[in-house]
Amino acid sequence: MQIQYAERIRTLPPYLFAAIDQMKREALSKGADVIDLSIGDPDIPTPAHIVDAMKKAVENPEHHRYPSYEGMFSYRKAVSDWYRQRFNIELDPEKEVLSLIGSKEGIGHIPLAFIDPGDIVLVPSPGYPVYPVGTKFAGGVSYFMPLREDNNFLPDLDSIPEDVAKKAKLMFINYPNNPTAATADEKFFKKVIEFAKQYNIIVCHDAAYSEIFYEEKPVSFMQIDGAKEVGVEFHSLSKTYNMTGWRIGFVVGNREVLAGLGKVKTNLDSGVFQAIQEASIVALQTDDNVLEQIRDIYRERRDMLCEGLKSAGFEVKKPMATFYLWVKVPQKISSIDFVAQLLKEVEVLCTPGVGFGEHGEGYIRFALTQSKERIKEAVERIRRLKL
């Protein structure tokens, strides 16, 4: 039997992190001691009180049946309470909060609700690869908005051609940003809202890193007047509470947009395991002192890696949020070639910027997801490179 993939699969580029995993496996198979600073998967354990809540919840037979599609009301209420406490935003847990099997799932599915073949989606470049992939699966066309250092890694909305803006149905933005670690202020979000209203575009703000910050708390897109009229905000418990493997998140905002995404989800998944939702309610009620301890760990790692890379000859700007460093390639070679060189010569793995889109070329991304001892060792190895 001859198996033939659909065109949407055949024309997909290799998923960035799957390709990196393959590079890592090949190096490990040869006995390399790889220090992996490539993927944003927290190495810090999920806080114990959340794990304890999960242990208790998983024994409840009521949770062993199908969950509700939109999420338990108690979970959605916990999300709305968290938004009120963190951002001073009022959300209707019934209509303005929707549970997700991780924010990645919701981001990948939302184009299916609003994009017809040929419709345009405004996508940041560099950016999370799921934005253009979800667009492609829905038959849409990505128009890439360059994120350049001279504009603080914010998209220049004024440079988007009017004929493109008129055809656009969705816009993805992401602050604090992956991979650049840039943050956005109220002024930028206000401009996004004005642009969205002018061209009738749904804004999808990915705020997965809002709680990984250092000197200043990031603002929420939902805090800005008019945000609920034009869009939604995606969140995940993965980074904030070190729960990447648990696969739970949520999206809040415009109730019509959430209803559209909900229609897709009811036909494609059966919701989040309720025991995980129970534990996530406890997570959302976590004292900020616990989260500050996590941020302190990343802050120490950030400072160590920034100073170490600078001393090795790299041009580095200290990030104010996320657990990423967005670093210029110090040689006149491609980001992929430089990543391969690092892995081969000093057994340190990072991520090539071009993997996040054409406008990520010239940069590499380091993740602060190893212990300070391993980061110190990585710096010592990198210093041996002849840049």
Results as ranks from 00 to 15, higher is better:
4 Q>G: 02
7 E>Y: 10
13 P>M: 00
14 P>M: 05
19 A>S: 15
25 R>M: 03
30 K>M: 06
32 A>E: 03
36 D>C: 02
45 P>Q: 11
46 T>F: 09
54 M>D: 03
56 K>N: 05
66 Y>D: 12
70 E>T: 13
77 K>M: 10
87 F>E: 10
92 D>M: 07
94 E>V: 12
95 K>T: 12
98 L>G: 09
103 S>G: 11
113 A>K: 07
116 D>W: 01
123 V>Q: 01
124 P>Q: 06
128 Y>H: 12
159 S>N: 10
162 E>M: 06
165 A>I: 02
167 K>F: 02
167 K>G: 02
172 F>Y: 14
173 I>G: 03
174 N>T: 07
176 P>D: 06
177 N>H: 15
184 A>S: 13
186 E>R: 15
188 F>G: 11
190 K>G: 03
190 K>W: 01
193 I>S: 06
199 Y>Q: 03
199 Y>V: 01
203 V>S: 03
204 C>M: 09
204 C>P: 02
207 A>W: 02
209 Y>G: 00
211 E>Q: 14
216 E>N: 13
224 I>V: 15
228 K>W: 03
231 G>S: 09
233 E>Y: 09
234 F>C: 10
236 S>R: 07
245 G>L: 10
257 V>F: 04
257 V>R: 04
262 G>V: 01
267 N>R: 14
271 G>A: 06
272 V>G: 05
274 Q>W: 08
277 Q>T: 10
279 A>S: 14
281 I>A: 09
289 N>H: 13
289 N>S: 15
294 I>P: 02
297 I>W: 01
298 Y>E: 01
300 E>H: 09
304 M>N: 04
305 L>W: 04
306 C>E: 01
308 G>P: 04
311 S>K: 15
312 A>T: 06
319 P>K: 10
321 A>Q: 07
324 Y>C: 11
327 V>N: 06
329 V>Q: 05
330 P>D: 02
333 I>D: 00
337 D>A: 15
337 D>Q: 14
339 V>H: 04
341 Q>V: 00
341 Q>M: 13
344 K>Q: 12
357 G>S: 10
369 T>P: 00
375 I>Y: 01
376 K>R: 13
378 A>Y: 05
378 A>D: 04
379 V>Y: 01
